[in-house]
Design a protein around this nucleic acid. Structure first.
Lengths: 151, 151
DNA sequence: CAGCTAAATCATAATCATTACTATTTAGTT
DNA sequence: AACTAAATAGTAATGATTATGATTTAGCTG
C-alpha cells in the first residue's frame, strides 16, 4: 500500500474514525489530487460510480471530516467547493500558485507574514491565504488573452 | 448626491449601461458596504423589499456586470458569493485583513509580489489574493477560542 | 467467533442560491 | 412622440449541498 495512504488511514485511526470501504476508496481517489483541485460534486459523482447508490450526505460529510483532520484542503469557488489532497500534514503555511489554464497547483515557500503583521497592531492573526493566479511555465509557452474596459 | 455614487453612475454611463431606478438603488445600497462583505443573496433579499417582485436574475446579473466594471469585489464562500463595494477604482492590489468575528475588512498595503515572482520562473502571474483572518483590534479585546486534534 | 453498540451509511426528499427563458417594459435617442 | 436595443418581470428549472430517519457495519468485548 502507498505510504501516503497508510499515513492517512493512520490519522483516521488515531481519531477513532472507522475505516470503512467507502472511506478507504475516498482516500484512494483523493490521493490522486495532490497538485490539482477537484470539485466536491465531481468526487461525489465518482464515488457514486464506485458505489452505486452511495449517499451524497456520506460523501460530503466525509470530505468535511477529512478536512478537519488536515487530510484535505477545501477552497470555496462560485457555487462549488473544491478539494485537494494535503500531502504534507505538518506543513502549515500554504501559499499557492494556481495555473488558470491547466489548474496545476504549485506550493510557494517564503511567508511575508511579518511584513503584514506590523500593519495590524492589536489584531490577532489566526490564518491567512496567499494565492497567485496566472499561467504556469508550460501554459505560458502556448497561450495569451486580453480584455478592456473604460473607467 | 454622494460623490462616490456619482462616480459609479459615471462609470455605468461611460460603458453605455442604462441608469435604471433598480441599478440606482442597487448602487445606493452597495455603497454602504465599503468595508464589509455582504452575501449576494442578502442583497437580493433587500432589493426585493425595495422592489417587490424584482427578478432574482436582474439582481444577480447587475452585480456581476458591476464587478466586471470594477465597481464591486466578489468573493466566493461556501455556498455563497459575497460582494463588497470597491471605493478606490484605481487601486489594483487588494490585500485584506478580514475580522472573523465582526467581518470588518481592512486594506493592507505592501505587496510581497516580488518575493514570490522569483519562485515562479517562466510563469505568467496575472493576479493574486492575499488575505489574513483573525480578530481585529476591537474584537481581540473581548474574545478567545481553541480546538485540538491528534495527528 | 457470536453478539453488541455506537458510528457510519443508505434512501429519499428538501433547501436554497443561482440561472434560464420568454414576454413585457423602459431609458435614452431620433 | 416614436423607436429600439437594453433591461426587467415573472415563472420555473437546475444543481450543489443538507436534513432526516431507517438500516447496516466496524471494531470492540466476552
Amino acid at each position: 500500500m502507498d505510504t501516503t495512504i497508510e499515513q492517512a488511514v493512520g490519522i483516521l485511526r488515531r481519531n477513532q474514525l472507522k475505516i470503512t470501504k467507502q472511506r478507504q476508496a475516498l482516500i484512494d481517489y483523493l490521493v490522486t489530487y495532490k497538485d490539482h483541485y477537484v470539485a466536491i460534486s465531481e468526487v461525489d459523482e465518482h464515488m457514486r460510480t464506485l458505489f452505486p447508490g452511495m449517499s451524497h450526505n456520506t460523501i460530503y460529510r466525509n470530505v468535511k471530516e477529512f478536512e478537519t483532520l488536515g487530510l484535505l484542503e477545501l477552497k470555496a469557488q462560485a457555487n462549488q467547493t473544491l478539494v485537494k489532497y494535503q500531502c504534507d500534514f505538518k506543513h502549515q503555511h500554504h501559499h499557492h500558485f494556481i495555473c488558470s489554464n491547466c489548474g496545476k497547483v504549485q506550493e510557494l515557500d517564503a511567508c511575508p507574514l511579518d511584513a503584514f503583521e506590523a500593519q495590524l497592531p492589536g489584531c490577532t492573526i489566526t490564518g491567512h491565504r496567499i494565492e497567485f493566479y496566472g499561467l504556469c511555465a508550460d501554459c505560458t509557452a502556448k497561450l495569451g488573452a486580453s480584455k478592456s474596459l473604460s473607467k
